[in-house]
Amino acid sequence: MRDYIRRLLIAAIMALCVSLLFLGGKQTEASMQESKEIKAGWIWPADGVISDTYGTRRGTHKGIDIAGKLNAPVIAVEDGVVGKSYYSKTYGNVIFLKHPNNYVTVYAHLNKRLVNTGQEIKQGDRIGMMGRTGESTGVHLHFESHQVEWTFDKKNAIDPETLLGHTEVGVAVKGGMASSTNILAASTYVNSEKVHYIVQAGDTLTSIAKKSNLSVAELKEVNQLKSDLILPAQVLVIQK
């Protein structure tokens, strides 16, 4: 009798463990699906060139920097509510947006803030103008993303690339474009009195040279290219 009861208990415990594993798997799957939906829906907050990425400066840089023009529009990456809009000694003019699914985004060093605390914002709404206020060495947008809430020690910070898409220093991005398409958007970008072109799939140096009224040799020289090989998303200088 005791052996029978023991077997029943063991069977019950095993069934409970299997149920918990099944539920955990479902929750993980749902969490992954939610993350994919967020990633697919977010847009870049400004036009410019990536000048710094997450985790640099010995791990202290908890965002990405987009260098651009003074007073260039800065937009909301997703629907949300303005949690804070104020002037900080370090961030300068800064805006915090609270988004669905427990995310907070930060837009810092703005020349001007265009929204107030408590204001409801739609994705793509203009919330500020790019600047160099606070502790900033040049005109750019410092953008951060956090889970649940922003804290002074930034313990909840996550790499914005997980929500916006992969990028790297020197790559041009376009505000308002979705992560899957913005890096490859057919466009030019003016920065530091130079015109840049983002290489598209199917582009060749010859085709870009024709568009730019340059010879292939001139294009290679100005970009210090040693071969004719170019890759999609590569940024080329096409005019000084």
Rank of each mutant, 00 (worst) to 15 (best):
L110W: 03
G176C: 06
V139R: 01
V237D: 08
T167F: 14
S19V: 13
L97K: 03
L184R: 12
S35I: 15
W44N: 10
W42Y: 15
S51G: 10
G83N: 15
K39A: 15
A185N: 05
K240D: 12
L214F: 09
L70D: 04
L70Y: 11
Q200C: 04
T151L: 11
K220I: 07
G55E: 03
A157K: 04
M1S: 12
I158R: 07
D3E: 15
N156F: 09
S88M: 07
A67N: 00
M14E: 13
V94T: 05
T133W: 07
D65G: 01
Q119Y: 05
D79T: 04
G118E: 03
G63A: 03
N93H: 08
H142K: 00
P160T: 02
N111A: 15
D65N: 04
I121S: 00
L229S: 13
K98L: 12
R113L: 07
V18H: 07
S19D: 07
G134D: 05
Q33K: 15
Q224L: 15
E34W: 13
H140C: 08
I75N: 03
L114V: 03
G131Q: 03
Q33Y: 12
Y86R: 15
A108S: 13
S136M: 07
N191K: 11
D159K: 00
V139G: 02
V173S: 06
F143I: 06
I230E: 05
I208A: 00
G48P: 03
H142Q: 01
S35E: 15
G41I: 10
N156A: 04
K174F: 15
Q234C: 04
K240R: 14
V49C: 08
Q123A: 09
D125V: 04
S180G: 10
G63R: 02
V49N: 01
E149K: 11
H146A: 02
N191R: 12
G24C: 06
N191A: 10
M1E: 12
E120T: 15
F143R: 05
V94F: 00
R7C: 13
N71W: 08
M1V: 11
L205C: 00
E37H: 12
I13Y: 10
P232E: 02
I238D: 00
I13E: 11
F143Y: 09
E221M: 14
V77G: 10
A186I: 09
L23C: 11
V235G: 09
E193P: 05
G118S: 05
D47A: 07
L97S: 00
P73S: 02
L8N: 07
W150D: 01
M177D: 14
D153L: 13
H140M: 10
G59Y: 01
K211H: 06
L9T: 08
W44I: 07
V77D: 01
L16K: 12
